[in-house]
Design a protein around this nucleic acid. Structure first.
Lengths: 196, 196
DNA sequence: GTCTATATCTTGATAGAC
DNA sequence: GTCTATCAAGATATAGAC
């Protein structure tokens, strides 16, 4: 039926417009941060009118919240054993950071977590909570919480250093080299009693 | 001589006014970031007129550059042996972070390094270069650069997680506990061949 | 030397034409 | 539903009075 088809295509068109806006916003929030991303610049990149962005997302904060929600779940880390935790953590992180969409969704959080409370809250209480629970639950020592937090902080430092600050020596290193050096380091954090 | 005395006290007064502005700017850049720090808010906190801030520092970027220059040198790290490098790095970092002045000078860099190119440049090419050179020069393997960069990234992750993101478990932990868990981790990064 | 007043720009958000 | 036009707020920076 023509009317039905037109209805579907209208909904579909709206969905695509929303996606175009969301895509442009994700990229800009990730690359230049929340403050320097403007409704106008997002609309321009998405090829729509600035007023449409407000219509769909309500406010700039609403737009950011929509991007912040697009995090990829860290499945390997949640299912790993204690011994497998370091490899699972790096696999999840690299998978995130090597796909442009999930990478920008994560970078949008990291880029703004020091200057935007909303980003800090989602990163700390949502994304990092996964790491924290997965690690802490597998260690039976009183300092399990600290170990988990240090592992999370190390991964944050790796992401920021490699992909954002672009520290010389780390930004150009291969994933294999990074894993080779970092796996034993993370293993030390999840192994409470490494007897000889 | 009265004229001389008046001259000295005028210079001294100017110096104190500059210091008051710089102190207020350092605190605000560290706590709320570059964008949300305004010339007006700095002047208000320092008890001076906003135009005076422009007069002394030229621009908001000039004011930030003055704060960014106030970094404390990391003497222990530069003088340490390879074995002493992890302890020296943590000693320098904690000494920095436990004194309000040097802490805010460093946090002003870290808080803004993801959204302000000037902050990123100073942090990467000035502050972290110390760590990099100290570590890389003491390791004789081809991956020395990467090891040094990973050590720097870990310290950045620690600082951000503990003092800025305030990750639960890490923010409240004692310095002793953090050192106990992190020293062997950093040692692993500077020890290329840990044979049994 | 210090400060008042303001020029100039940019932003998020809104109102209303079509 | 979409866009033009505009508002109100807040910023840096400057010009000139005192």
């Amino acid at each position: 039926m023509a009317a039905d088809q037109e209805h579907v295509s209208r909904v579909e068109k709206r969905r695509r417009t929303e996606a175009a806006i969301s895509d442009a916003a994700r990229t800009q929030f990730a690359e230049v941060g929340f403050e320097r991303t403007t409704i106008r610049s997002v609309a321009s990149a998405a090829g729509v009118d600035p007023a449409l962005v407000m219509q769909y997302f309500g406010s700039k904060d609403g737009l950011f919240a929509a991007v912040a929600r697009q995090q990829k779940p860290h499945r390997r880390l949640l299912d790993a054993t204690r011994e497998g935790t370091p490899q699972a953590a790096l696999d999840d992180l690299f998978e995130d950071l090597e796909d442009p969409v999930s990478r920008d969704a994560l970078l949008a959080l990291m880029r703004n977590c020091l200057t935007h409370e909303q980003a800090a809250t989602v990163l700390r209480d949502d994304v990092m909570r996964h790491v924290h629970e997965a690690v802490a639950s597998r260690i039976a020592t009183p300092d399990a919480e600290l170990r988990a937090a240090l592992l999370g902080a190390t991964l944050v430092g790796l992401s920021i250093g490699r992909y954002m600050l672009r520290i010389p020596g780390l930004a150009e290193a291969s994933r294999e080299d990074v894993e080779r050096l970092l796996l034993p380091v993370l293993a030390l954090l999840v192994e409470p009693a490494p007897q000889a």
